[in-house]
């Protein structure tokens, strides 16, 4: 084994790595925000009284979750133009990330909504709120809080998944790694450094999301089981 590591050859390209990191971060944050919004809408549709709407969401989720992200990207970027829909790499990449991850956030948020007891809804209704008001003021915040850890995990998975959009030519951290590697031939060093950057991003997401969670959900956890209800439903 006479391979001599030369990390200096990698650090020379730091402006490129920095740029890639910024693109990856921006793409991840933007996509995650969209995934939470669409996931909430998806979860509502999944619980809607209209059967067709429910089924549409179920089919969407099952198809997306049971096919690889890479293949979905190829369909979006290489396949859609034959239908006359032409997307540039970045748009196709972000769209693909959002489509893929929304299938997961929908299920996560649905679990959160399910965890909100019916009595909370009734309580809102009983003071005269409309169903929309109940959702906005009573249901959504505790629901998101209940599944917040899962959403944070999904955020990390989303960010890591952005590396795959390099395969359709989006210029982000991974594709810059490829580029540097083809010019300086220090492939192992390049990928080691970039892996460390991704690891740092993962830790940053966890850390900052924990901080954000403390701000968003300042109230403490409601301890279940403290209220004992006699069994009387009727």
């Amino acid at each position: 084994m006479d391979y001599v590591f030369q990390f200096r050859e990698v650090f020379r390209y730091w402006p490129l790595l920095a740029e890639g990191t910024v693109v990856t971060i921006a793409m991840s944050i933007g996509a995650m925000v969209l995934c939470v919004i669409f996931g909430t809408l998806g979860a509502l549709a999944r619980r809607s009284r209209t059967m067709i709407l429910r089924w549409l969401v179920i089919i969407y989720i099952d198809i997306i979750r049971n096919t690889p992200f890479l293949v979905q990207l190829f369909i979006l970027f290489f396949g859609l133009p034959s239908l006359g829909i032409r997307l540039d790499a970045m748009s196709a990449g972000v769209l693909g990330i959002v489509i893929y991850n929304t299938a997961f956030t929908t299920e996560i948020i649905r679990a959160g909504l399910q965890a909100i007891h019916k009595s909370q809804v009734e309580s809102g209704l009983s003071i005269g709120m409309s169903r929309v008001q109940v959702f906005l003021y009573v249901v959504i915040v505790p629901a998101l809080q209940k599944v917040y850890p899962a959403l944070v995990s999904q955020f990390v998975l989303l960010m890591l998944g952005t590396s795959i959009v390099s395969a359709i030519g989006v210029e982000e951290l991974t594709s810059y790694a490829h580029q540097i590697q083809t010019t300086n031939f220090r492939s192992i060093e390049v990928y080691l450094v970039v892996i460390c950057i991704y690891m740092a991003l993962t830790l940053m997401i966890r850390f900052s999301m924990r901080a954000l969670g403390r701000v968003l959900f300042r109230y403490r956890h409601r301890r279940p089981g403290r209220i004992t209800l006699p069994v009387e439903q009727l």
């Binding site: 590396s163 795959i164 192992i188 990928y191 970039v194 892996i195 991704y198």
Partner: peptide, 18 residues
């Protein structure tokens, strides 16, 4: 905490070069 794609590339180059 790191992308599988990066892990793949790293293994690929490590195993072929080393």
């Amino acid at each position: 905490g790191t992308p599988l794609l990066m892990q793949l590339f790293l293994w690929f180059f490590m195993l072929t070069l080393l």
